[in-house]
């Protein structure tokens, strides 16, 4: 199998805390891979370590065949990784349109991708002139994903897209993510196991800063013991 991303035994420190103590994540090209685990297990930190916001002190992050763990965040991102962070991080002082434009990596990215983004999230179209603050939670999530689509990204890191959203909107979000996975590879952090199991083909479970189990989602769905043990869900 061809892996677009291969995280090998990374150790990440935040301050003096040893947060990640050996995480391996292999992401097959074109797949949706879910990072699962309890609150505080280290899923967000894993995503941030991949994109260099909390650079790992040990281990390797191999993206499209190249080691990127020693590079600066913007260099890593420029290689084609889109990041949709946990709390959306919409820029408040920017309009919705500027929130998209700022993600341009090559001049004209925004104009090229505009139609595609509006097809995916028609709601955004009428919000363009508003400031980032004026959006509802669901709209902010759409904007955060849309922002990761402006540049030519091959890999999307999406952190808890369903968090705090109403079921109808979660439906909509899932549809969008499924559509996106046709063109790009997606690493998805998702607390809601139902959502994760419907979207992802592969999974990695993280527990107390270590990756403890990985495989195909179909197998996990039948592994009630693992689900109970690591995710606390029935």
């Amino acid at each position: 199998m061809e892996y677009i991303l291969d995280v090998q035994n990374i150790h990440t420190f935040i301050g003096q805390y040893h947060i990640l103590q050996g995480v391996d994540v292999r992401v097959p090209k074109g797949s949706i891979t879910a990072l699962l685990g309890r609150n505080g297990a280290g899923k967000t930190t894993t995503l941030k370590s991949i994109i260099g916001l909390t650079p790992p002190r040990e281990g390797k992050v191999i993206y499209e065949g190249k080691e990127v763990q020693d590079m600066r965040s913007f260099d890593i991102a420029s290689k084609g990784i889109g990041f949709v962070p946990e709390h959306r991080a919409i820029f408040r002082d920017l309009t919705v349109e500027e929130n998209l434009k700022i993600a341009e990596r090559v001049k004209g990215d925004y104009l090229r991708k505009k139609e595609f983004i509006f097809d995916l999230f028609p709601d955004l179209k009428r919000l363009m002139a508003l400031s980032g603050t004026a959006l509802s939670g669901g709209q902010q999530q759409m904007l955060a994903i849309a922002r990761a689509l402006v540049a030519d990204n091959h890999l999307l890191l999406i952190d808890e897209p369903s968090e705090g959203l109403a079921p109808v909107i979660i439906e909509h979000m899932m549809k969008a993510i499924r559509l996106l996975s046709k063109d790009s590879t997606i690493v998805l952090v998702e607390q809601n196991f139902l959502v994760a199991s419907q979207l992802a083909e592969y999974y990695v479970i993280i527990e107390e800063g270590r990756s403890v189990q990985a495989g195909s989602m179909k197998d996990l769905a039948n592994d009630k013991a693992a689900i109970h043990r690591y995710l606390g869900a029935a």
Binding site: L53, F74, S78, P85, A89, F91, D93, R105, A151
Partner: peptide
């Protein structure tokens, strides 16, 4: 507002 997010956009 958020330096990390700007950096993560490739800037």
């Amino acid at each position: 507002q958020d330096r990390e997010m700007v950096e993560a956009l490739g800037i």
